[in-house]
């Protein structure tokens, strides 16, 4: 009897363990399936049999300058979309990166405990802001504001979208950078101060360089978020597929194109395949960024555990 009871008990444990393992595997499987699905749907395009006979689509046509997918003579040049994504992402990071890093430097090294307790959660709340709310704010308030200040022709443009996007990116860069600064060994600060450096010099010339790897990772994560963000750019950039370098003209980003067009597209159509191809590009891009960021974060952690700085 005793034996059976014991065996029974172990069976439960065994089952529970397996169940939890199964749940963990499920999420992995999902990611994997999504991946296969997205890649599969874009394959006809890559292999070149996506179009009906009358208008063939080659890869060179894919990187041409006109994005007119719904037309009597559809053109699927994704070049303007790539430029659009790059433009908006660059603007958002140029604004967000310095603000976020300096804010993190301030709360991690200079601010009093009380200030830190207020500033940090407030910035982190920004991370939880639904992007559609930020987009709405940009559409209604920011766009009008910038149009009046800069006397712009277009209300909705890459700049407005970039500024709105920076609101979403700041908390990400901030959180990771702050983390990187906080994990630096205390001895560094103490040594620097003992050598006669001021607190400001310690933060800027000792701690900030020491956290470079973490900050770089923060930058990459922010870049990934910015590149993949859909709702904010869809609402705030005007969505005209132009390949100009003027930041005050409208842009259509890769993610916005998918967001706006995927719902409507006829299944199995060339347009459908092209949208999936854009999805693949986005996926590869953010996957690479995340992998690199992860690599840098890991390396820093390893160093810390091994006692190096």
């Amino acid at each position: 009897m005793k034996f059976f009871k014991k065996a029974n008990f172990r069976l439960n444990e065994f089952l529970a363990e397996k169940a939890i393992a199964a749940i963990a595997t499920t999420s992995l499987v999902f990611i994997f399936l999504i991946l296969i699905f997205v890649f599969r749907e874009s394959i006809p395009l890559v292999l070149g049999y996506a179009m009906e006979e009358d208008n063939k689509l080659s890869l060179t046509a894919l990187f041409s300058n006109n994005w007119i997918p719904v037309s009597n003579h559809p053109q699927f040049g994704i070049w303007p979309l790539i430029i659009g994504s790059i433009k908006v992402t660059a603007i958002s990071l140029i604004i967000a990166f310095p603000i976020a890093v300096l804010a993190a430097l301030y709360t991690a090294t200079l601010a009093s405990k009380r200030t830190k307790e207020i500033v940090k959660p407030v910035i982190e709340i920004l991370a939880g802001f639904p992007s559609v709310v930020i987009g709405f704010f940009a559409l209604m308030v920011l766009a009008t504001f910038f149009q009046n200040v800069f006397n712009l022709r277009f209300r909705l443009n890459a700049f407005t979208g970039g500024v709105a996007l920076s609101l979403a990116v700041i908390p990400i860069i901030y959180t990771v950078t702050e983390e990187a600064l906080n994990t630096l060994p205390k001895t560094m600060t103490e040594a620097s101060l003992a050598l006669g450096a001021t607190r400001w010099e310690t933060s800027l010339y000792v701690l900030l360089p020491a956290a470079t790897q973490g900050i770089f990772a923060a930058f990459l994560l922010g870049l990934g978020r910015s590149f993949g963000e859909t709702m904010i750019v869809l609402m705030a950039t005007g969505n005209a597929a132009l390949s100009s370098t003027n930041i005050f003209e409208s842009v259509r980003t890769m993610s916005a194109a998918i967001g706006a067009e995927m719902a409507e597209v006829v299944f199995g159509d060339a347009h459908y395949n092209v949208l999936f191809f854009i999805g693949v590009l986005l996926f590869i891009f953010s996957f690479t960024l995340n992998a690199i960021a992860e690599f840098f974060l890991k390396q820093r952690m390893m160093k810390k555990f091994q006692g190096g700085a």
Partner: peptide, 12 residues
């Protein structure tokens, strides 16, 4: 049947 100019702002 011609295509819209590319700088048209398209809104949802």
């Amino acid at each position: 049947g011609k295509d819209y100019m590319s700088s048209m702002q398209s809104l949802p």
